[in-house]
Simulated assay, not measured.
Amino acid sequence: MTDTLRRTTLTAVTGLGLCLTLLPAGQAFAQSPTTRVPCNDIPALKAAINQANTSGGRITLASRCTYTLTAPDNADDGLPEITGNVALTGRDTTIRRAPNATQDFRVLHVVSGGTLTLNSLRISGGSLADDNGGGVANEDGTLNLNRTTVRGNHAEMGGGLYNTGGKLNLDRSTVERNTTDAWGAGVFNTGEGTMKMTGGSLRDNRALNNGGGLENISGTAYLHHVSVRGNTALEGGGIRQTLGATLRLKSTEVRDNIAVSGGGMSNNGSTATLVRSLVTRNTAITTGGGIINEADGQVTLTDSRVVRNRPDNCVPQGTIAGCSDPAGRTVPPAAKLPPATDTKALR
């Protein structure tokens, strides 16, 4: 009986070993290791990121905790650069640059080939007067935000988020109250980068130059069920895009934004498609209260409305089919708008 059990056990172990051998590299153990970082233990957080850069892994932060960065880890970044596959998860958890920090630095930085996933976090307080991406910068990497808020950051360009040549994915996330000295107070997307945003909002961001909520230069941006609201800029209070950029809005509302021109949106030499979306109650000091379309740009409205903007809806006249009357006397078909609860849930 004992010999039979031994032979059975040996057979099972051998079979398991064979199965693990046949699995592709990295799949023998499907789950990455998880590292738990105590509340506001910055050295432990940096060590966990360095480890995850090397071997991959998930980092769990303490719930309802604020991790405060008082000095940069390197020249411009509060935490180590993301070079590997790193996931940070919290619950009502904040990572911030200290309000009294004496040096300028952003919070996080993804470099080429790196992937960073942020789950249920707040990123705030980053400041870079002479560089880009006050909250998080993504350079040719991948940046994923899930139920995450990027709030109160500042930079020369991309006050909240800066994405150049990489992939930026936002799911039910909020980018708010960020500022910039130049372009893209909320998000700056450029260098043929791709931005995809589902749910959430770009709101109350302020650019001294262009693109209050979003500045899209030679990039591609998809916004689905997003609220673009309360942003301000010199041009393109809500959204500005130029240099062959591509924008698609679906079930999205652009509302209550302010600019000198292009209160809701400024489209310059680029392509914008609005599907079941609304551009309303935006204000321009000069012209293009709703949308200004310049330099052979193309804007297509599908079941969308551009109405009740000041001092006009779309300019120049005749460049946007379905929105040819800047006085707003022609009203296109009604749009299906995002439920108000989507935005309120994130406040």
Score class of each variant (00 low, 15 high):
168 L>Q: 04
87 A>C: 01
64 R>A: 15
197 M>E: 11
318 G>N: 11
265 M>C: 01
236 G>L: 03
170 L>C: 10
45 L>M: 07
227 S>C: 00
177 R>A: 12
341 T>R: 08
77 D>V: 02
3 D>Q: 13
117 T>Y: 00
281 R>E: 00
70 T>Y: 09
163 N>A: 04
36 R>Y: 07
148 T>M: 05
157 M>S: 13
325 D>L: 03
260 V>S: 11
308 R>F: 04
195 M>W: 13
68 T>E: 11
158 G>F: 06
38 P>E: 06
79 L>V: 11
270 S>A: 15
224 H>E: 15
82 I>S: 02
177 R>L: 13
133 G>P: 11
94 T>L: 01
27 Q>H: 09
116 L>Q: 09
263 G>R: 01
298 Q>G: 02
203 R>D: 00
14 T>C: 06
50 N>M: 09
60 T>Y: 11
232 T>W: 00
45 L>A: 08
17 G>C: 07
93 T>W: 05
125 G>D: 11
307 V>T: 15
112 S>P: 01
226 V>G: 06
200 G>W: 05
244 G>A: 04
297 G>C: 05
47 A>S: 13
119 N>T: 14
225 H>D: 14
142 T>W: 03
191 G>I: 03
42 I>M: 13
310 R>M: 06
296 D>Q: 14
50 N>C: 02
95 I>S: 03
329 R>H: 10
73 D>G: 06
174 T>L: 09
82 I>H: 01
92 D>T: 10
223 L>F: 15
198 T>W: 06
343 T>F: 08
149 T>I: 12
217 I>P: 00
198 T>N: 12
285 I>S: 09
326 P>N: 09
176 E>C: 08
59 I>Y: 10
103 Q>I: 11
80 P>T: 12
75 A>G: 05
152 G>C: 05
203 R>Q: 07
337 L>R: 15
151 R>C: 03
290 G>L: 01
65 C>D: 06
311 P>R: 09
176 E>W: 00
148 T>Q: 03
259 A>C: 08
270 S>W: 07
175 V>S: 02
154 H>V: 03
43 P>L: 10
332 P>I: 06
12 A>H: 12
300 T>F: 05
342 D>Y: 12
158 G>V: 15
218 S>D: 13
3 D>F: 05
15 G>H: 05
294 E>N: 12
198 T>Y: 05
14 T>D: 08
169 N>P: 01
245 A>V: 09
29 F>R: 14
87 A>P: 00
337 L>S: 10
281 R>S: 01
141 G>M: 12
205 N>D: 13
145 L>A: 06
122 R>C: 03
2 T>H: 07
70 T>P: 07
308 R>K: 06
229 R>P: 01
339 P>L: 09
315 V>F: 01
149 T>D: 04
98 A>E: 03
29 F>P: 00
117 T>D: 03
45 L>I: 09
329 R>T: 14
119 N>D: 15
228 V>I: 15
213 G>M: 02
146 N>H: 13
274 L>K: 04
103 Q>M: 09
106 R>T: 08
78 G>N: 14
212 G>V: 00
54 T>R: 13
222 Y>I: 12
137 A>Y: 04
133 G>H: 06
59 I>M: 09
155 A>H: 09
